[in-house]
């Protein structure tokens, strides 16, 4: 297909636009789901908050206050409209605005996730490459067993083992990751080291295995054999011939695993009593503080969807066939 420069860029932009559209639509569907999950399920929030002893009048008044007497559709519009303006309603447990509760903790969670990701990504990609390079050798076999074991461990076991060894036995790091009142950056890094390194161990294993698989997959192609036959060194074959073609799947793997961090964060925050979003969500689930659970779920879901979207877009953009359409 021949065409003007505008026509050549078109397919790429169109695919990215399509992915963005799907992402926004998914987010909309998920927000509806999160809203409906709470509204359609058995049990009346007002009755539960006030307890069985409440008179029908107080329950009715409280329902009116929460807006539960309005039709479902209006409640959804009201809720999503508020969310888009940063108003997540009020906590049932203590009456404080949910947005204020979230604001304090979202930063902490983001800090922890970014800390873990900055260590895990370079580590996992390097190890994955080496293991693909030395496929079938000792290094590969040992990492295979180690990563398979790491994947099978519950996050809280890794967390407690690290806490036991590094905090209790060695006393190098605090066993409770409470950032306290505005610590310095270095102090913060030290205090959150244990939760971060737990996340690194959990995520690296996954990311490394997937990176290895992606590179091994590319290494099976005829052009790699060709490069070997013309006398290129193993390292050169991997970095110059295999890696550029494995880039798209690797980027995908990285984004997917950073999204995976989100699940790990919930448990790790609980273990180290770290005041983040995950701990807030677990506490709110136990208290059945529905507005807070909804807000947390929406934020986690939005981050997850955005990261997956980013991975797709980068994977599309990194594909030479789409960059230079014929």
């Amino acid at each position: 297909m021949s065409g003007a420069p505008a026509g050549q860029r078109h397919p790429l932009l169109r695919m990215i636009a399509a992915r963005l559209g799907i992402g926004v639509f998914t987010l909309f569907v998920i927000s509806t789901l999160i809203f409906l999950a709470i509204s359609l399920l058995p049990g009346d929030i007002a009755q539960q908050v006030l307890g069985q002893s409440a008179t029908p009048e107080t329950v009715a008044a409280f329902r009116r206050e929460l807006g539960l007497d309005q039709p479902l559709f209006w409640r959804y519009l009201d809720w999503i409209g508020g969310v888009l303006h940063g108003d997540f309603g009020q906590s049932l447990a203590n009456g404080r605005p949910v947005a204020a509760l979230l604001a304090a903790r979202l930063g902490n969670t983001m800090f922890l996730a970014a800390y873990a990701a900055l260590i895990a990504v370079p580590l996992a990609v390097t190890l994955g490459l080496l293991s693909a390079l030395w496929r079938g050798r000792m290094f590969d076999r040992i990492t295979n067993v180690l990563t398979l074991s790491a994947i099978s461990l519950p996050e809280f076991l890794i967390a407690y083992i690290l806490m036991f060894l590094l905090a209790v036995r060695m006393g190098w790091f605090p066993s409770i990751a409470d950032p306290g009142a505005s610590p310095g950056f270095g102090e913060m890094l030290n205090r959150t080291f244990l939760p971060a390194i737990t996340l690194v161990l959990v995520v690296t294993a996954h990311m490394m295995r997937m990176t290895r698989a992606a590179v091994v997959n590319v290494m099976g192609n005829p052009y790699v054999t060709m490069a070997r036959l013309k006398g290129a060194s193993r390292w050169r074959v991997v970095t110059r011939h295999a890696l550029p073609n494995a880039l798209a799947p690797i980027v995908n793997v990285v984004a997917l695993n950073i999204a995976w961090l989100i699940t790990g964060v919930v448990i790790v925050e609980v273990v180290f009593v770290y005041p983040g979003l995950g701990q807030l969500m677990v506490d709110s689930v136990t208290n059945r503080d529905i507005p807070v659970v909804q807000a947390c779920a929406l934020i986690f879901a939005a981050v997850y969807i955005l990261l997956n979207l980013l991975a797709d877009v980068v994977a599309i953009a990194a594909n030479p066939r789409l960059l230079h359409p014929r």
Partner: peptide
């Protein structure tokens, strides 16, 4: 499209 643990927490808070 959503992490399973998050959906599970959401569902369990609704269902009890």
């Amino acid at each position: 499209a959503v992490p399973p643990l998050i959906l599970t927490l959401l569902a369990l808070s609704a269902l009890g």
